[in-house]
């Protein structure tokens, strides 16, 4: 049977696909040193080089590498979605905010900000924790008690790691139900096989011009 672990990894895994996607989130950077020959990264100028003082949004993985301390190649600013304005919104009522729109990897990406020496990093991290605490109750409520309701609206507002949590909760509920109705002792076709067959079937329809 499937393992009952929820993958909410903190991003220490080199091979983790979610972590790779989360480290693609952008962070505003200012170049302290000119970078020769890489002007194509900044599409607003035809200049072949990146000059001192250029402002660019770089992905987290690149910023992390270029930013060491004050003398690094770039210095970073807090991304907009983690700044004071958004923090206040999240503090007011975390459960109504559409986190998926703020960044599909809101928590993972936010946690990565701890690697930079941002002045307001303590507040950012506190906000992340409080946001999760504020939203967790509704996530659990929705995934544990509403089996036959359309929850698309709620799921749409969850960030990727919350979605995994939600899915795990629902799976648990479904399996409890099947245990109650003695379905769980029935041997069944594995889900991998079933999915494979569905794909094959869809593919066959497409090939025959349906």
């Amino acid at each position: 049977m499937a393992a009952y672990s929820v993958d909410l990894s903190t991003g220490n895994n080199y091979f983790d696909l979610n972590d790779i996607l989360a480290s693609q989130e952008k962070i505003p950077c200012i170049f302290n040193i000119a970078v020769e020959g890489l002007g194509y990264l900044d599409q607003s100028t035809p200049d072949p080089d990146i000059g001192v003082g250029t402002k660019l949004e770089l992905p987290l993985w690149l910023a992390k590498y270029l930013h060491r301390d004050a003398r690094g190649i770039v210095s970073v600013e807090t991304p907009k979605t983690y700044r004071e304005g958004y923090r206040q919104i999240l503090a007011a009522d975390p459960s109504v905010v559409d986190l998926h729109r703020l960044g599909p990897h809101f928590y993972l990406g936010g946690g990565k900000l701890a690697l930079f020496n941002l002045p307001d990093i303590q507040d950012v991290l506190k906000t992340l924790l409080q946001t999760f605490q504020g939203r967790f109750r509704r996530i659990m409520d929705g995934s544990q008690n509403a089996l036959h309701t359309d929850l698309t609206n709620q799921i749409n507002m969850l960030d990727e790691s919350e979605r995994r949590l939600f899915a795990a909760g629902q799976r648990g509920l479904l399996e409890f139900q099947s245990w109650e109705s003695r379905e769980s002792e029935k041997l069944s076709t594995s889900s991998v096989v079933l999915n494979q067959r569905k794909r094959k079937w869809v593919g066959a329809c497409r090939d025959s011009g349906d």
Binding site: V35, E36, L62
Partner: peptide, 15 residues
């Protein structure tokens, strides 16, 4: 002054 560009490219290779 070329070092910064080298570092940037190196980061991309590692990524």
């Amino acid at each position: 002054h070329l070092l910064s560009a080298i570092q940037l490219r190196h980061a991309a290779i590692r990524r």
